[in-house]
Design a protein around this nucleic acid. Structure first.
Length: 876
RNA sequence: AGGCGCGUAGCUCAGUGGAAGAGUGCUUCCUUGACGCGGAAGAGGUCGAGGGUUCGAUCCCCUCCGCGCCUACCA
């Protein structure tokens, strides 16, 4: 006999190991079954599993297990990502504790530490993935820096370079002074800050009044090389072509005209710093302005800023500049001002635009194809709205800066000749310069953006650039499940690279899941201290409960707000299933002699199960996890447990073998339906069933069975349920304990009713707790009843002394009557409108009339019952 | 500034052009032999505000209010 309460821990460990040991998650390239493939979004090696992962991996695991049970050859390929910046950050934090920076180490020393780190912490996350039971094919595990993958990355780089789609340029890029590397545009987070807008006078040359410019970054003025105004601005027209004196530097700079200047903003005159502002950079190029770098890559002022400022931090410098301007009377005005400032997405440091040589991907041609496959519906976003987000970015895409001044990652396969400056991009280090044959070559120090390699994940993991069997069988993959926050970072780039190098889409469907938030809808973050740790939750509630919670809350396009309450609810559900199974097993023990027919309840539950199976398959087909989860939840708890298990008891007592077989079969089917959502408890129970196979993973997923559909059984059950509920309601409202056995009188409505009720009286006695059932055509006037309605039937509980509280029942009936009257009034009003009768569909009108008739009957009966009770009350 | 999304029961959220739903919480009753991580019954909602389309709107359209998120070179 199973224990009374389900204990997840030992069960989960057992099956998680079993599945892997038996190779049940392994895909066979040679299989004859249809394939279904996915790649796991590779978690960072630095991290541990958080709730975002748990959600993002639970949903595809549900699909993977479902597809496997449908007979697919399923590949779900796992792996981890080297995550350059994240690894740098954690290692540098460690170094900092020892008072070191990475510059104190050699590149080789640093990389050794990083590899050790990867071995140690990469293992942590894979163990967590195994523990959660994700059905990943571990025999194919990959890492973005393993040898094969590195070759793929180099191949892509070299190919794109040779085609002119990768180039090197001296450009103003986003630089994080803390991380010490440049970042791509999308790695910059814009945050609104309260700041000041400073108005500074630049005096005119030869004593004219000059102009006043407005800026949020006064420290950059040291590098100004022009002032720009709008060509049509009457205030400044006369100044264009003349010069103003740049304060503090005492350098004459020209006033130029450009249409990009907004006349309405500030004073209509803008200072131009081509080396430190993206807009100014463009303007500078257009007007051939000098680029004066006054801030270096560590955000310190350079010599060009002048001796007074050199070496100062950019913000210290700002204060000093303001101080000086004030002293000279050139700071005209300060205004409070809110504006968006770029921050590093990793360390939140304010970004410094920085002029330097970097590598870029010319993205236009790649984007074009990637847009088309989504437009044409070859790749489908779920929910479809996310395609809009995708398009918006793709239409306005900028070239992608891919070089990073870091060490942990794929080193750029470019070599420079120190003699003739030739650039060589090759798969392997060249021996000599291809132009001058010099052997003095140095490799580019930079590495590639981590996302450059992640973009290759769907085919790099399958063996590309080798033409492997895996690649042939499993590419393109079928589904990519991920968060909306990396549509640009990852999804878009995978599409571009997949199309470019495989000539085919990397995946068919992109399922975008929402963010996991806390119960107050706040983002989970370490600093807020509101992190819900999935592993803590699995300890507390079990992995099945956690998985089911995530599935039940996964409404496409919506963020999930997670609460422990909710999880506790689903833990109860797991326990409920456990106990339903205990009941089934209890009845398995005592073998009966057989015989018997399928009861109404048997036919009903089979009909319902068939329907529910159909609905679940349909919901999963559409990735409606919440719908599938809720259907099965409701069916198991409120149909199978609440009704069927109670209804089957009388049949089991009679030794009905058909009922017993149905009971076992239903449990089997339920376990199969539930398995993708809660794999552990279902496997555990299923293995206790007689004649179960090696694993529930290999059992067939239930489908709708038309031969099980039984409309008559469903209708009859509905009538029985109505009757039983009516009795329970009367009992409950009169505070008669349910288990108190009563005499029930039913006034039947149709000729066959008596036979029907007699045939099911065992179930009725059991569920309504009766001691007597009288079937009558009319109630005797002599006896006293508590009456109610059950569909067409009128029911009466025979009143016994001291059994009822009349006042309570009377007020209940009065409430009921009032509500009925209100409903009647509404319908009558509707039916009085000629426009409704004329224009509404005939069936709607008919339905309304029928409903009205029903309500009128109810009203009549209720008031009849009421006056009977009132009479009783007076006679007392 | 643009784009997207949300506003329905105390809370978290489904849902549909033709009688307001679930889970949880709350109230009352019940130690029925699968389960108190349980059972039964119930209370609770002008479906954000105002217009419009319609015989009929919580649902479609417009405006507004409130709240998120994303994109963006007005310094």
């Amino acid at each position: 006999m199973l224990p009374k309460a389900y204990d997840p821990k030992p069960v989960e460990d057992k099956w998680a190991n079993f599945w892997i040991k038996e190779g049940l998650f392994r895909a066979e390239a040679s299989s004859k079954k249809p394939k279904f493939s996915m790649v796991l979004p590779p978690p960072n090696v630095t991290g541990s599993l958080h709730m975002g992962h748990a959600l993002c991996f639970t949903l595809p695991d549900i699909i993977a297990r479902w597809k496997r049970m449908l007979g697919y050859n399923v590949l779900w390929l796992p792996g981890t990502d080297h995550a350059s910046i994240a690894v740098h950050n954690v290692i540098e934090q460690e170094l900092q504790k020892k008072g070191l920076t990475r510059k104190d180490l050699s590149r080789e020393e640093f990389l050794q530490i990083a590899w050790e780190w990867k071995e140690k912490y990469g293992g942590v996350i894979t163990n967590q993935l195994k523990k959660m039971g994700f059905s990943l094919d571990w025999s194919r595990e990959r890492f973005t820096m393993d040898e094969g993958f590195s070759r793929a990355v180099r191949t892509v780089f070299v190919t794109l370079y040779k085609e002119g789609l990768i180039y090197r340029d001296y450009y103003l890029v986003n630089h994080c002074p803390r991380c010490g590397t440049v970042l791509s545009d999308i790695e910059v987070e814009h945050k609104e800050l309260s700041a000041k807008l400073y108005y500074i006078r630049y005096p005119g040359e030869n004593g004219h009044e000059g102009v006043v410019v407005a800026t949020t970054r006064p420290e950059t003025m040291l590098g100004d090389t022009a002032v720009a105004v709008h060509p049509d601005d009457p205030r400044y027209k006369h100044l264009v072509g003349r010069k103003v004196i740049l304060p503090l530097q005492n350098r004459p700079i020209p006033v130029i005209a450009d249409e990009s200047v907004e006349m309405d903003f500030g004073t209509g005159a803008v200072k131009v710093t081509p080396a430190h502002d993206p807009t100014d950079f463009q303007l500078g190029k257009k007007h051939n302005l000098e680029q004066v770098i006054v801030i270096d890559s560590q955000a310190r002022m350079t010599a060009a800023a002048g001796p007074e400022f050199q070496g100062l931090d950019r913000f210290e410098c700002r204060e000093k500049v303001l101080e000086k301007l004030r002293a000279q009377g050139l700071l005209v005005k300060e205004e409070d001002y809110r504006h968006a400032v770029g921050h590093c997405y990793r360390c939140k440091t304010i970004i410094e635009p920085h002029l330097s040589w970097q590598w870029f991907v010319k993205i236009g041609p790649l984007a074009k194809e990637a847009i088309r496959v989504v437009e044409e519906g070859r790749i489908r976003f779920v929910p479809p709205n996310w395609a809009k987000t995708y398009f918006e970015w793709m239409y306005n895409i900028h070239d992608w800066c891919i070089s990073r001044q870091l060490w942990w990652g794929h080193r750029i396969p470019a070599w420079y000749c120190q003699d003739c400056q030739a650039v060589m991009v090759e798969m392997e280090a060249p021996q000599e310069c291809s132009r001058c044959h010099s052997r003095r070559l140095v490799q580019d120090e930079d590495i590639l953006d981590t996302w450059f390699s992640s973009a290759l994940w769907p085919f790099g993991t399958l063996g590309w650039p080798e033409e492997t069997e895996d690649l042939r069988v499993f590419y393109p993959t079928d589904l990519m499940a991920t968060g909306f926050d990396i549509i640009f970072f990852w999804v878009a780039r995978m599409i571009m690279m997949g199309l470019k190098f495989m000539g085919d889409i990397p995946f068919r469907d992109v399922f975008i899941n929402g963010l996991v938030r806390d119960f107050k809808k706040r983002k989970m973050s370490k600093s807020e201290g509101n992190i819900i740790d999935p592993l803590e939750m699995t300890e507390k509630y079990g992995t099945d409960a956690l998985r089911f919670t995530l599935a039940a809350l996964a409404i496409p396009g919506m963020d999930i707000s997670l609460s422990e309450e909710r999880m506790a609810g689903y833990r109860a559900f797991v326990n409920k299933i456990w106990n339903a199974a205990r009941f089934v097993f209890l009845n398995l023990e005592e073998k009966t002699e057989g015989g018997g027919e399928l009861t109404l309840a048997d036919r009903w539950i089979k009909s319902r199960l068939s329907q529910v199976a159909g609905e679940i398959n349909e919901a999963l087909e559409a990735y409606k996890f919440y719908e599938a989860a809720n259907r099965i939840y409701h069916f198991v708890w409120h149909e199978f447990c609440d009704w069927y298990l109670e209804l089957v008891k009388p049949a089991l007592e009679k030794g009905n073998e058909k009922s017993r077989a149905t009971l076992v079969e239903m449990l089997d089917m339920i376990l199969r339906l539930l398995h993708p959502f809660m794999p552990f408890v279902t496997e555990e129970i299923w293995q206790h069933l007689p004649d179960s196979g090696r694993s529930l993973l290999e059992a067939a997923f239930p489908q709708e069975k038309p031969e099980w559909r039984d409309k008559k059984a469903e209708e009859e059950m509905a009538r029985l349920q109505e009757l039983i509920t009516a009795v329970r309601t009367i009992k409950a409202e009169n505070t008669i304990p349910l288990k108190k056995k009563v005499s029930l009188w039913v006034r039947v409505a149709a000729p066959g009713d008596k036979d029907f009720l007699r045939a099911h009286q065992a179930e009725i006695f059991h569920l309504a707790q009766l001691k007597e059932l009288q079937l009558v055509d009319d109630f005797p006037a002599s006896a006293k009843f508590l009456k109610g309605l059950a569909g067409e039937w009128e029911v009466g509980l025979l009143v016994e002394e001291g059994l009822i509280e009349l006042e309570k029942e009377i007020s209940r009936l009065m409430r009921e009557l009032k509500k009925t009257e209100e409903d009647i009034a509404k319908l009558e009003a509707r039916l009085k409108q000629p426009s409704f009768l004329e224009r509404a569909p005939q069936e709607v009108v008919e339905e309304t009339r029928a409903r009205l008739a029903e309500l009128r009957r109810k009203k009549a009966k209720t008031s009849e019952h009421l006056s009977a009770l009132q009479g009783l009350s007076e006679s007392k």
